[in-house]
Design a protein around this nucleic acid. Structure first.
Lengths: 208, 208, 208, 208
DNA sequence: CATGAATGAGAGTTCATTCAT
DNA sequence: GATGAATGAACTCTCATTCAT
């Protein structure tokens, strides 16, 4: 007894965005297929024409989100800019991904845990996440090697940076005091300050 | 025909710890009352002798966790140590709370979102969280006022610090390369480095 | 945007065979329209160009199957062969129908029950089934009347024969030890042996 | 918001009987958990306190039914009665099981197919079924070996017997012309007649 | 207090059916 | 005619919650 066909066909892309939004808003377990469907003016059952299950939907969201941010970050990392600029650029990408691209990145960040029970899926997710982290790490390591940054525990440093950047999605509100770009710049500045090499011993000063 | 009472009466405290653990592990919506009960060798129904609902359990966990860490942090902030030492101390408290106290703090961090739908509850939670954040902010502001730290956007800085510290609960594994204390120290060092005032322009140096 | 029509128009006949196969394989309730459609390289929706509903499909299958076997059996029963030959012939028809004609007969046998809820449909189905049974019964009764078979409870006998013949569809496997014809012959032989009149008391023997 | 506790505790046994009845009436796929639950004055969800899934319920029904009839039949087969008496006895057991023991046996017979998709389960079911069939076969083979029965294709014969006996559950109606015991006796008589050795060629008669 | 059994409100998922293209 | 997308009803299963024992 179906009656009313949808006004216009829904793209799987729109569903992914809707899912990301709802997963982020309610969490994976708290989100219902009906919630997601409503976001694109569908009913829950209709989603199954596009994705075989809720879990697959989450996988697709995470996959898509990580792939996108990874691609953008990699472009920066592979570029020829100074390390400090690279770090500023990836902070920018990271924050903007979180707050602009339909929360896909934010869902990635916080709901990836929901997948950690499903072994096959988990592995792929963890691998992608590690790939991204490795890119951040490379920027820092290269900067240290080049003498632009002071040596420190890169592992902890990158995880702290990740935490600071990811956390933005939890407190950012549109129309707040600062734009996403400004927030990214400020965070980058903070972490760059922490990477500042100490003033060279005497070297900067002309001999008396 | 239940006959055999638990070996020893279960303290509400143990239930809170169990709930925190399970909330952290599975998320609020993913956790079941049976999961939590099993953690203390009870059945789901028995939990209702101690807490009126699952939501109340979460509230209690968050309340307890925030209250505890807030109390500890406040003690430090109210003390007379130099700002840098205070920041090191609260990082230590923060990280240790996350990874040692039965994940209560970690649950606080990530599952507080589950309460954001319930208005009355939400407000109390947000208020407590803001109280804690204000303490961190005070340390930074005092340090800046005292000239120990360089001036910067304190709001962003504190949120970045929060993110970096909270993130630890997502990647920390017992028996890893570093202890919680070492991690806290490293993160504190990073953020303190970012707070380092630039070398005074010449003033520190005697005239040549 | 469907563009490519099926290679060649699908006959309702092919759909009926497909439906019979799937109904037999999965049972009426276990079979989906998509299953049936796939069997003839269609999609579920397309079936509705040929049959108004799943129930109608089952009706058509049963109707067709029963009509066919009834026609064949009637031809034998109305013929002039000896009763024993008639019984052999209908066993042959019955078994071959089950295992060769796309399981239509087998579906008839086991899935007719699914219709027993729908009153109007049920009646027609039951009537057809009784018609078929009456033909079997006539062969036995005629044989008894003619003195070829020993008298016995014809109702039970025919139902036992039905059961034995129908059961074949549940255990027959293509390429097994015996062909369908051999199985039919063996079953017929068994039931004919049971119909054997006892040796006449003395009458057959010349006086000593 | 549960309100009304059941008047009296339901035994798993009662659920099994209910399930057998409903499975038989509607078929496995046509039966709903609510149907089964209603039969014992429960709601669907409550069944899950006793059986982990609908499939498990079917397994339990089949297991129980097959085990019971197999036990009874084995007792007869292992006894010392003449082969003909054994065959009469097992026909009696078989038919009575079908029509009296809550349709468990009938469900076994017709709904076992629903399990044939689940490999692990299927194997156990098939094994049990084969065990039962082997008992029937043994009776016939022993009878032949003892010269009580004429030699014939035992495989087909036993399957025909099975079919005839199982079919009873499809047409038997309480209060009909014959009791279950009478039906069993008649079917046994039919098959025993088919097993009758032909009158010895003259040898039995004294020379004239 | 603890328990096991029960409940009712969904949740995810399936599926027969419809319909614009 | 065929299709893909959509729907709504129904189903299996889960779970927070209650309560007699």
């Amino acid at each position: 007894m179906p009656r009313k066909p949808a006004e216009q066909t829904v793209q799987p892309d729109a569903i992914l965005k809707a899912a990301a939004t709802v997963f982020y808003r309610r969490g994976y377990h708290g989100a219902t297929m009906a919630d997601i469907a409503a976001e694109v003016n569908l009913t829950a059952g209709s989603l199954y024409h596009h994705f075989p299950s809720k879990e697959d939907l989450l996988c697709a969201v995470l996959d898509r989100g990580l792939a996108q941010i990874t691609r953008d970050v990699r472009a920066v990392v592979d570029g020829g800019a100074p390390s400090a600029d690279k770090l500023r650029a990836i902070a920018h990408i990271h924050v903007l991904s979180e707050i602009e691209h339909s929360n896909i990145a934010a869902a990635v960040i916080f709901e990836g845990r929901a997948l950690l029970d499903v072994p096959g899926v988990r592995d792929q997710y963890v691998r992608q996440r590690d790939t991204l982290e490795a890119l951040y790490r490379r920027v820092v390591e290269d900067g240290i090697a080049a003498g632009d940054f002071r040596p420190l525990d890169v592992g902890i440093f990158v995880k702290a940076l990740f935490g600071a950047l990811n956390w933005v999605s939890l407190w950012y509100r549109e129309g707040g005091r600062l734009t996403g770009a400004q927030i990214a710049a400020e965070i980058a500045a903070t972490f760059l300050a922490a990477l500042q090499p100490p003033p060279a011993e005497g070297g900067d000063f002309p001999p008396c």
